[in-house]
Computed example of a mutant assay.
Amino acid sequence: MVSASPSQPPPRRLIVAITGATGVVYGVRLLQLLRELPGIESHLMISDAGVLNLHQELEMRRKQVEALADVVHSVRDVGASIASGSFQSDGMIVAPCSMKTLASVAHGLSDNLIARAADVVLKERRRLVLMVRETPFNLAHLRNMTSVTEMGGIIFPPLPGFYHRPQSIAEMVDHTLGRVLDLFAIEHTLTPRWSGLKAE
């Protein structure tokens, strides 16, 4: 856990959740990036389906990913610190966000700690970013995304950009996560800034 000394400000806290959609690389890489940045304390939750995808897509175990976070919470612990509005944070990123988690947030179900923490972030008017992963979207998906947007959340499908001419999947992932970090005003050098179209 990141701690503050009398001469240093308290750490910025970011809540990260990994759920059962494809694209767990976004959540893992995000944790790696946050670990490298000074003054940021990460709080992690991984759903059971998220654990399955870690093994399927990255051949990683839960413990390997949990080791990247400053604080780890069980999704079943609805009494955790992050379940209360009195817990100070800059916000929450769900990377990736399954349609089940999206629906839970959109309808305020708070049926596990991920959905409850997202509900808290929304009610406290903090930043919630859902990196939703599904295609194509059906009407329920679209309506749930609209509901979350109307509540102040940000729907952020991890769609790769190509104008920076990525040479690898890793570059595409970093470019997307750079945009996510921008939403929290976190400085980074993950990708070059857009400077306009090049002349012929």
Results as ranks from 00 to 15, higher is better:
1 M>R: 13
4 A>K: 15
4 A>S: 15
5 S>A: 11
7 S>C: 13
8 Q>G: 04
12 R>S: 14
13 R>W: 03
14 L>N: 04
15 I>E: 06
16 V>F: 08
16 V>P: 03
18 I>R: 01
20 G>N: 06
24 V>I: 15
24 V>S: 03
25 V>W: 00
26 Y>S: 05
27 G>M: 10
28 V>H: 10
30 L>S: 06
35 R>C: 01
35 R>G: 01
36 E>P: 01
37 L>M: 14
38 P>C: 04
40 I>E: 01
42 S>F: 04
44 L>R: 11
44 L>E: 07
46 I>W: 03
49 A>S: 14
52 L>G: 11
56 Q>F: 15
58 L>Y: 09
61 R>M: 08
62 R>P: 06
63 K>M: 08
64 Q>C: 05
65 V>C: 07
65 V>F: 03
67 A>L: 03
67 A>D: 15
68 L>P: 12
69 A>I: 05
72 V>I: 12
76 R>W: 09
77 D>H: 11
79 G>F: 13
83 A>P: 10
84 S>R: 12
86 S>C: 07
87 F>W: 08
87 F>R: 00
87 F>S: 05
91 G>L: 03
97 C>T: 06
98 S>P: 09
105 V>L: 10
105 V>Q: 03
109 L>S: 09
113 L>A: 07
116 R>C: 06
120 V>E: 08
120 V>G: 07
120 V>H: 08
121 V>D: 03
122 L>R: 11
122 L>I: 14
125 R>M: 07
125 R>W: 06
127 R>M: 02
128 L>K: 05
130 L>G: 05
131 M>Y: 07
132 V>I: 15
134 E>W: 02
136 P>C: 09
138 N>G: 12
139 L>T: 15
139 L>H: 11
140 A>W: 01
140 A>Q: 07
142 L>P: 00
143 R>V: 08
144 N>H: 14
144 N>C: 10
145 M>E: 05
146 T>K: 14
146 T>E: 15
148 V>R: 07
152 G>L: 04
154 I>K: 09
154 I>A: 11
160 P>E: 05
161 G>T: 06
162 F>C: 01
164 H>R: 13
165 R>A: 10
166 P>Y: 02
169 I>S: 13
171 E>A: 15
172 M>S: 12
173 V>T: 14
176 T>Y: 10
177 L>Y: 09
178 G>S: 07
178 G>I: 08
179 R>E: 05
179 R>G: 08
180 V>F: 02
183 L>A: 10
183 L>D: 02
191 T>M: 14
198 K>H: 11
198 K>N: 09
199 A>V: 11
